[in-house]
Design a protein around this nucleic acid. Sequence first.
RNA 1: GCGCCCAUAGCUCAGCUGGAUAGAGUGCGUGGCUUCGAACCAUGAGGUCGUAGGUUCAAAUCCUACUGGGCGCACCA
Length: 582
Amino acid sequence: MIQAKLKAIVEQAIAKAIDAGELKHLSACPVPIVIEAPRLPEHGDLSCGVALRLACHAKTSPIKIAETIAQFLEVNSENVSRFEVASPGFINFHLGTGWLAEALCEVIKLGSAFGKLDLGAGQKALIEYVSANPTGDLHIGHGRGAVYGSCLANLLHFVGFAVEQEFYLNDTGEQINQLGRCAWAAYKRLLGQDVVYPSEGYPEDSLKDFVNQVIKEHGDKFLSLNDTAGEETLRDVTMASIILSHKNLLDRLGVKFNRWFSELSLHQKDQVEAVLSEFSKRGQSYESDGAVWLKAKELGDERDRVLKKSGGTTTYLAADAAYHLDKYERGYDRLITIWGSDHHGQVPGLKAAVKALGKDPNKLEVILTQIVNLSRNGQIVRMSKRMGTVVTLAEVMDEVGTDAVRYYLAESNPQNPINFDLALAKQTSRENPAFYIQYAHARCSSILRKALEPSNNPDTHELTPAPVSRSQWDKWLSEYKSSPEVFSAIFDPQIFAHQKRLVMRLVSFPGEIEDAAITRSPGRLARYAYELANDLQKFYEVCRVITPNEEVTRARLGLILATRQVLQNVLGIIGISAPEKM
RNA sequence: GCGCCCAUAGCUCAGCUGGAUAGAGUGCGUGGCUUCGAACCAUGAGGUCGUAGGUUCAAAUCCUACUGGGCGCACCA
């Protein structure tokens, strides 16, 4: 778009300056030419700092280089109304209306595809996230992983990856057996039996709701079972109830998985044993003290890791290795695994296992999400699985609202810890950023409705025809897509800055997408959405859209349409609804 | 003790592949609704970018040490 066009012009100017012998010591531009939006309006609409980077190559001061380049710049005044060199060596460009109008045309022409890129080129990517143990409620930390993962999935899809999303279900092992013991005791106690609740394991309170759900479905018919059968049965039905609640809650949060991958299935299909044989066959494991060890130290870990305990059972790492081998064999080009930061110690082990299996470790990206500190009025709410989750994700969503929770969790970068104050979030929920962005979208919709729908006078009950007729609108829609000149009437010299700012924000969307995708930071799109909404509000404040002048109305409705489109596109990625009315 | 992550406005967070006067939101002060949605806008105050060095024409950004906080260092998962 505009940045690329400007970049080409700067590139050409540098080449000409070199040809003319004005930039000594250079035969080609050795640094990338970056066109960016300056922070301050007096620095123009777009700025290029290439002269600063060229200084040490050209052995001249940045300001002189900038002046030299500026001499060779060839711009059309309709596109770039003026440019100037500013200390310490920036070239600042002030845009005219030409490129801006063309850009709006492109936004409307591309519609929901505006901003899409082809970074992925159809490569298959698998994102595994949440993967919470089915032994209790989800908490806000799971929520963060869930929101981050789903935003990243949306984003990577938007930039051309074939994305699949997967939840790894730890549905077997010691913690699940413990769930069985606790649930069996809770079941009997809830049905009036005087049995002792296990002192070790999950707190009774954290299981009560799930066991009550079991009782609601199955009644007391399991009471006749002996303890062994009872523990197994309660284990399975309680786990099913927990998994269902996880599915429902994540669904409510807008998080959807293609697959819930069962760890148990790996054992049942002997994939865990198979991966152990594979390690052995490749000479990557050995026996010691009756246990089987992975030679992880040779592969970058700080020490070797146990795969199979002397008691004969396999470790979590063995199952995880089998799981990741399965992922590799399913033929993905990128494997993204999102874990809570408390698992960071496992990353070298997993990477070592992957290397030991002869798979490309660079395909596997492990992203860690840092802790969410939950507080209420400044008081930290402690979360601990052993103590039971004090505040569940469901409660946070009920209290604050799902869109607001989603925005808060989406906005931050995963590697930073965040503080989430319930009282604060609730108190400001009416003015929260998610709401603000949605409001901007609803406002655009409202303006379009106002333009296209007849209005009803409440006193006289007379219908006033719509300012813009249906047939006229259809004609405009096609003009928006093919005739940039219709937009020239948007621009009013009095308030050009506001209008330009809004258009520039729309124009910067593809670049934002690219940066967000490359750095795996969908959060910056959440912030972009806020900025866009803010620019729309400022524009709206000073500029009427529906006016008696048909050409002006046509142009400004087009701008509103384009803005609404980009809001929809970005809200789609961060997974927040774009309502027509609020 | 060792390793990883973090420290920016009262609070919540951006900015970090080095570039112009460190930005938003929230809270606080002031002003603005006869007109497409005031759930909005304008404006003011508020910062030794944890501390100390170093690299550089240029450091919140890179390097080192330190301080403070979180997490991890099992034949647990």
